[in-house]
Design a protein around this nucleic acid. Sequence first.
DNA 1: CTGTTAGCGCGTTCAT
DNA 2: ATGAACGCGCTAACAG
Lengths: 329, 329
Amino acid sequence: MSTINKIAELAKVSRTTVSRVINDSPNVSDAARSRVLKVIEETGYVPSEQAKSLRTKKTKVIGVILPKISTETSSKIVSGLDEVLAPFGYQILLASTNLQKEKEIEFLHLLKVRQVDGIILVATNADESLVKEILQLKKPMVVIGQEIPGVSNVLYGDYHAARDLVSLMINKGHKKIAFIGVDESDVAVGVKRKKGYLDVMQENKLTIEDQWIQKGIFDIDSGYDAMKKILDKSTTIPTAVFAVTDRLAIGAMQCLKEKGFVIPEDIAITGIGASELSQYVTPSLTTVDYLNKQAGREAAKIILQSIQQEEYSINKINLEYRLIERNSL
Amino acid sequence: MSTINKIAELAKVSRTTVSRVINDSPNVSDAARSRVLKVIEETGYVPSEQAKSLRTKKTKVIGVILPKISTETSSKIVSGLDEVLAPFGYQILLASTNLQKEKEIEFLHLLKVRQVDGIILVATNADESLVKEILQLKKPMVVIGQEIPGVSNVLYGDYHAARDLVSLMINKGHKKIAFIGVDESDVAVGVKRKKGYLDVMQENKLTIEDQWIQKGIFDIDSGYDAMKKILDKSTTIPTAVFAVTDRLAIGAMQCLKEKGFVIPEDIAITGIGASELSQYVTPSLTTVDYLNKQAGREAAKIILQSIQQEEYSINKINLEYRLIERNSL
DNA sequence: CTGTTAGCGCGTTCAT
DNA sequence: ATGAACGCGCTAACAG
């Protein structure tokens, strides 16, 4: 690996001049410039980002904290991020919490120490401890998926999407609608989507049996289990089920099919997420598309902007979503 | 951001001593150590990885080059990588080529300039230009998915998996088996899997009509198109189709269903990949599971090892695979 | 046990 | 137009 010094030596100039040539600043004689360029060419020299960063305090790296790497949501977001970041020469440094909340804070620090230029956090909670850390981080950052005061956010329309879906079910004539949710430490998915459901039910003066409300943990199996509980424990079997994620919904569908229910005739079902799966299960799932890739793009734009202008303006974006009506309802 | 100098000053010792305390090397008096620790505690000082890297030539970062971020294969591999890398304090720097071959080489350089400790390349071709670059890179590296001489590889059992699948079809009584492949610049998927198919067909003295062999480009739609061509152009309609990826197979299934064929009674079909989709389509798809997460884990182990021992031993691993028999055959 | 002295590879004044 | 000198924050060799 050749260094700037070696180039200077070979080209018989000072390091400074080499540096000038590289960053094509003015005040270099054509003679000197061409000598330097020639040597650079010959040696295949490339300046070390490493050392450059140490001086400039810029790394051209954006840290991304994900709850889990291997999910459709995550990979679409990252894909969207990369799409707008890459053309500007930024790269993505990944950190996965594997759903352990403490790690979100841990990685926040780690990324800061690594001197990333900005941090994008795909959050699964809005706990006080996390909020506190975020606010004192003093780095350009964007939180996706959870509303956190004092920082830029890219948010999904959780409440309204849930409302739309439940309203749609009611319009189709359903009155007995069950709910499969997730833990409420996840404000966006656990609280807001539930509220959307509860509000619409109440506005329509529909009653909800206690056992119609169950919880899962984001995977297909837990959707299955939740559905089983609803079926086993309810006094009245509902005619429709609103699950807060596609996977939960698909698990529920599995359970229903096994028990011999016909979807949507006996029991209708809807999810959220527009996962690829939702399109190919039978019957295809009515769901809402959250445009995760778009979320990534928006977050990237915000972070670039906030890196440039050096001032931490806070930016709140509410993403569009798209209701996809299919055959499960 | 406080620096080591400030800490030294506050603790009334030299930078060296502070450094010693941080890296808990011996030869520090308890008095000095505790003074330093106290100051560190108070100031919340954390050494800059940045500067440390400049000295030690180690960044604790592994560069990962992917053909596309947002695919099940990629995200599982990355997930496997992270699983073994994270506990050792390594992080992943992402680079996506978006299926542009030239970018593979470009990123190889970029990652080197960024001084990553190692590079993992999920390759989609084994072109000469790429091989050449890899060999002169002088960095610990592992290539996943394509066999490249002179570097460590983690390989899927492309040839044998294809053989197994086609053999299985023949055992089930099929004699007229069509094939949906991909471009042959992708040696693993394009060439090896095809060879598995051709060899088994020949060994069983089964003839193949020209039009039974079609190509797609990895996505569902192109599987659909390929199937359409087979149906439209063949003199004899085959009784089974072997697609080299699940997505291709699922696209083909869509086409068959539309045309009124019953799967697997009229025409059977198989894929490769064990995508989540394959499990939930109707009928569920017979496929082989390539254990991508395991591929990531293995690659990570190799790279860690080759970073430690400082010698670039080359390591070839052939991954296990698992045939999953379901209802499409 | 401790501090001094040197760089790692680069960008940046500030003279010349 | 050019280079000397300095410093980014840290580790490491060498004296003491």
